[in-house]
Each structure stands twice: as C-alpha cells, then as structure tokens.
Simulated scan of single mutants.
Amino acid sequence: MTAATPRRRTLLGAALGAALTVGSTAGCSAGHDPVRTLRLATGPEGGPYNAFGRSFTEAVAHSGRLTLTPVGSSASVENLQQLADGSVDLALTTADVAEDAVLGHAAFDRPIGLTALARVYVNYLHLLAPADGPVRQLADLAGRRVATGAVGSGNQVTAGRLLRQAGIDVRQHPLGLAESLEALRSGELDAVFWSGGVPTPAVSALARELPLRFVPLDAVAALLRERYGPVYTAVTLPACAYGLPDPVATLGVGNYLTARPAVPEDAVRRLLGILFDQWATLLRSVTAGARLEPRFAVSTGAVPLHPGAAAYYRSVYG
C-alpha cells in the first residue's frame, strides 16, 4: 500500500493540473443556472446501489440547482454500458468492472470514456451456504447449484473470476440477490455468491431464519489480487456482522461513483460536497462502520478522476 500511495498522488496531481485547464461551458455561470438534472444508474430494487441511489437523490434534492434521477439496472456492467451510450450521466460500479471498461476488456469491446468522482465504499464477497449443507469450503462447490449474480452485475464478474481462478466448475444460476436468497432458503440452490456491504440487510434477515455458513475465500482472494492488482483487497467479515462464531476472511472490491467526462465540473463539485458532508447517513443503508475520507476516495486505480473531482479534492487538501 505504501508503494501505491506515491503513484496515486502523482495521478491526483496530474488530474488536478488538468482541472486548471479543462473547463465546462455549462458551469461558467453557476449562480444563474437553472436546475440541472443528472441521471444516476444504480441497481436492482432491494440492492445496495439502489438504496444508496435513493438516499443520494434525496440529499441532492435539498441542495438546490441540481437534482438526480435514479435509473434502476442489474448493476455495474449495465450501468457503465448505459454511461457509454449516454443513457445516464452518473453510474455506480465495482472497481473491477470499471477497470475493464476503461481498458476495453471483458464485457466492453472497446474502451469507454469514464471518469471517477470517488471510491465510495468496499464490497465484501460473501459465499453463503446452509450451515447443515454439503458446502463447507470453496472446493465443495464443484458441480453444485450456485447463484453467481444477475447478468450485468459486478457480483457476476467477481464471482466468475474467483471460480475460474480456483478451477471450479459449478452449475451457475444468474440470479439477483433477492432471487438468490429465496432459492437458497427453499433448497433450490446449494450456495450463493453475493458482493455487497456489511451487513447486507437481506442476508441478515435470512441468517435469522436459516443457519448459514460463510465460507472463507482468502486463499483465492490473494491469487486474484496478484492477477488483477489492487482492484481487489483482503478483507474480513466481522463476527458481529451476522452473528458468526468467528471472523471470515474474504475478498473486497471497491465501489466507484463514476461520470461521463462531459458532466459539468461545477455539478461534480456540488455532488462531492454533498457526498462528503452526508456520508455517514448515505452509507448507513449499504454498509456499517464505513468512513469516507479523501485519501481513500481518490484511490480509483486506472479510472481517471473527473476534472471537477480533482478540483474538489485540491480544495480539500489545500
């Protein structure tokens, strides 16, 4: 982490310099601008992106001269595809999907114009199975019925990479969170991958009904970090999160708030001002105990900061 810090500061410095020369014609008379509406791609109903999007929309609505319209989706991949075709102005996405997008890899047949406002919080990859079932470790998934996330979601990307890295073939079910947990409850699935904040309310609710096993993923997490770099981190599900007997080591992946480069700089600065002013309330619905700090928010890897974001962080750092 110490080796990455100077590089990130160099990138931030470059972005801040760009902020001095790259302007937005739409934002030059902000004091007299009409209310500007921006479309924010979030995620499916009941998921953390959707919850964050609703909370952020409400917070922005009270700010004046700027409103957000949340747009539901299956999450990260679809969000960035909508950003690329201009259907939305802002999008939430996982770090691994965002990096694929700027590099033109995997689901993206060409690089897309993408900028970051902030790394907002970290997803924890959960591997859930009934406590009395046959899945006790990752290798036990072989040949079994496993939910790996909805099509177009970051969950599906992360779970798929982990399974390929581990060399495990499963009977994949491309289901969202609500459908996955219901199928696990009814016995139609043997395990569920879920990437989200801690605790995820829907997972907590199921854990109160059905004794669950949370399978450690740290061994493969380390290999994924070696292969894909710092988009992945080592994290631990705390025992208190779901009433676990012990903490569970797993894989973390950042969540970014991203924007089309054409979004006006003054709008980006206002959005970040609201985000940093109200982060405790905004993150409460998606992950417990998280903090939003500029030194972590600027850690967006291969995704460049929006010039308006660079200007905002320059004002924070002084």
Rank of each mutant, 00 (worst) to 15 (best):
A3R: 13
A4Q: 12
T5Q: 10
L12I: 06
A15T: 01
G17H: 14
A18R: 15
A18I: 03
A19F: 02
L20Q: 13
T21H: 06
S24I: 00
A26G: 13
A26N: 11
A26K: 13
C28V: 14
A30D: 14
G31R: 14
R36N: 04
A41L: 06
P44K: 00
G47N: 11
A51N: 03
R54T: 14
S55P: 00
H62F: 00
R65L: 07
R65M: 08
L66P: 14
L83I: 10
D85L: 01
S87T: 13
S87N: 11
D89F: 07
T93P: 07
T93A: 15
T94K: 04
A101F: 08
V102F: 05
V102Y: 05
G104R: 04
D109F: 02
T115W: 02
L117N: 11
L117P: 11
L117M: 03
R119P: 00
Y121A: 09
V122F: 04
A139W: 00
D140I: 10
G143S: 06
V146W: 11
V146M: 05
Q156P: 00
Q156F: 01
G160C: 06
L163P: 03
R164I: 02
A166V: 04
Q172R: 12
L181A: 09
R185Y: 10
E188A: 14
L189V: 03
V192W: 09
V192M: 07
G197Q: 07
P201V: 12
A202G: 08
L206V: 10
L210I: 01
L212K: 03
V215D: 02
V220L: 01
A222R: 13
Y228I: 02
Y232D: 11
V248Q: 11
R260H: 15
E265W: 00
R269G: 07
Q278P: 00
L282Q: 05
R284A: 15
R284V: 01
S285I: 03
S285M: 03
V286I: 15
A288C: 13
A297Q: 04
P304A: 07
A309Q: 05
A309D: 08
A311I: 01
S315R: 14
V316D: 06
G318Y: 03
